[in-house]
Design a protein around this nucleic acid. Structure first.
Lengths: 201, 201
DNA sequence: AGCAGGTAATTTACTCGTGAATCATATGCC
DNA sequence: GGCATATGATTCACGAGTAAATTACCTGCT
């Protein structure tokens, strides 16, 4: 939950972050380099106010949320230069990477967004000539969406810039660290995608 | 950028995810347990279409984004039960954990949101009696915001539920894994917060 | 055949956040 | 002192997403 600290979407400020460190409580001690990020300070504050708290999960989840917010902010830059929002690019990207036509509902699943949102985005992207629609012959409820040539070129043009940004953003971690991080996140994500329905209550 | 795969905010579906695995290209091989999550499939698709691509960063960033989206979705549940949105809770939480009054601009910095958004949220929270405002004597432009007793009780009531959700969500990782993850995210976040301004171009 | 129920896509009404003004005040400078 | 400039907070117009209804169509059952 942004561990009670919000990565909502907006600004890119850097709060005070003065504090002194204290060890984690989960039985997990954060080694040296976790020092000084915003989340550490937030956790410190919570522990000062609610000493009984197990802040272990907060340190992980808060950082995931904050990293996600900062990374997205940074990566939106090359998209804006191309006149696209990220959800729009995600939609185009889904078409590009699957290589075949997709129906609106498939696009919704693939981009983790609502059907209504997809409908609106498709309208805009169609008007801009990046995408084309075709009605299904058998079932006239469904539509098939595909990239136009300009749409494909746009995606292919943006992708390298996007990856360059990603590489730059991660340049603080060396190869093995990156691998470990990917692996740990992979097992976490696997768990979350598998049995999160149970938690959704 | 959700690694060209969108964690926008909405649904919680599970796309096909059929694929077979192939090794990473960054010089980093993902070990066994990264298998089968949604991002792995997306990465596989991109590599099939653009074989030259270095997908290493995507595997990390895509997973961070997707984890963040799923975790937020899960953790919003206890908040809705209390009639709060997450941004509202973040605001109240900032007041609670700092322990003292904050001005609207400080709240904006602390919750990483825009001033306008804070203004609106304060109006609502004030109407609900969770928060109080007081004008500054010296500088009549600034206001000071503090939690009311019901506001403080509300936060303190929600917090345990929140942490329980977090603990449950992370239960797939054992102690040492959690610690490593927190540490790696900590160094990444430190890097991002430090010199991301340079990338914001 | 004909209807009950389900599903794809869209539309509608609404909420929320944003960036760009705007107001009100404070502060530095000549 | 008095004006220029900066800053805190708010307001405004708008874009984008959502949930809930709506439309249009298919399919299985009797």
């Amino acid at each position: 939950m942004t561990a009670t600290e919000g990565p909502s979407a907006t600004g890119g400020e850097e709060p005070s972050a003065t504090g002194g460190e204290e060890p984690s409580v989960t039985g997990v001690d954060l080694p040296g380099p976790g020092r000084g990020d915003t989340v550490a300070e937030v956790v410190r504050q919570w522990r000062a106010v609610h000493p009984g708290l197990d802040t272990g999960p907060m340190e992980v989840i808060g950082r995931i949320n904050r990293c996600a917010a900062l990374l997205q902010q940074a990566e939106d830059a090359p998209l804006r230069r191309a006149g696209l929002t990220r959800p729009e690019f995600d939609l185009l990207g889904a078409l590009r990477r699957t290589g075949h036509e997709l129906t609106p509902s498939e696009l919704a699943r693939e981009t983790f967004s609502s059907g209504a949102a997809v409908t609106k985005r498709l309208k805009q992207l169609t008007e801009r000539g990046l995408v084309e629609r075709r009605g299904d012959a058998r079932d006239r409820r469904v539509a098939h969406v595909r990239l136009t040539a300009p749409g494909r070129d746009l995606v292919d043009g943006i992708l390298p810039a996007q990856l360059a940004y990603e590489t730059a953003a991660l340049s603080g971690l060396d190869g093995p660290e990156l691998g470990e991080l990917a692996a740990l996140l992979g097992t976490l994500l696997g768990q979350l995608e598998g049995r999160l329905g149970a938690l959704r209550a």
